[in-house]
Amino acid sequence: MNRTRIVVVNRATRDYRRGQTVVRALRGISVTVETGDFLAVTGPSGSGKTTLLHLLAGVDVATAGEVRFLGRDLAEMTVEARAALRLREVGLVFQRFHLLPMLTALENVELPLAAARVPRGERRDRATAVLERVGLADRLRHRPAELSGGQCQRVAIARALANRPALVLADEPTGELDRAASRRVLELFRDLNATGTTLVVATHDLEFAAGARRRIEVVDGRIAR
């Protein structure tokens, strides 16, 4: 299989200022994600997993070092240019889902498509197809309050997949779910990866991480193994 480098992180450091103190969240980390990867990023709370995901997505930029997404240096792009890149090339899944409560599952999935100016008819078709793909064909008109936690997370995954991104990043996707729902999300991720979706998942859940193709452990801002 011809594998393309989607994102390359080279000796990236990220510092945050908290009052008078500078907190170093990442310390010269290097990671490469290629097409077809299913990478699990593990580590204790505060180790820098979320910060690494934010750098991979271009949500945040490195204080030092370099992050290249499909060959483009993210540090040289404006905030809005990085947002536009994320809209089309990155799908994000959050621990707390962050679905709009007043919209139905279908409308939540349509949101990034609408933001990418996909025509209304095509938008609806693609959102329906991706919800069917995550097993929610019978929940299209339900609002988040009418869905279980696992179903909400699958809606969030569908939203992340809607614009057919090059990379899907998930931050603790099973953090709010029970074990059965976590297993279903893992199965879904494995199915998605098997059909070509590239995934990077930050997780505490070692069982979940064991289901990934590749795993790195981040401790104190560095890759431990």
Binding site: E80, A83, A84, L85, L87, F94, H98, A115
Partner: peptide, 16 residues
């Protein structure tokens, strides 16, 4: 705030 953060992270423009 959470939803706004998520929308910004997804790439929805600030203007929108």
């Amino acid at each position: 705030l959470g939803v706004i953060a998520a929308l910004r992270a997804i790439g929805v423009s600030r203007r929108r």
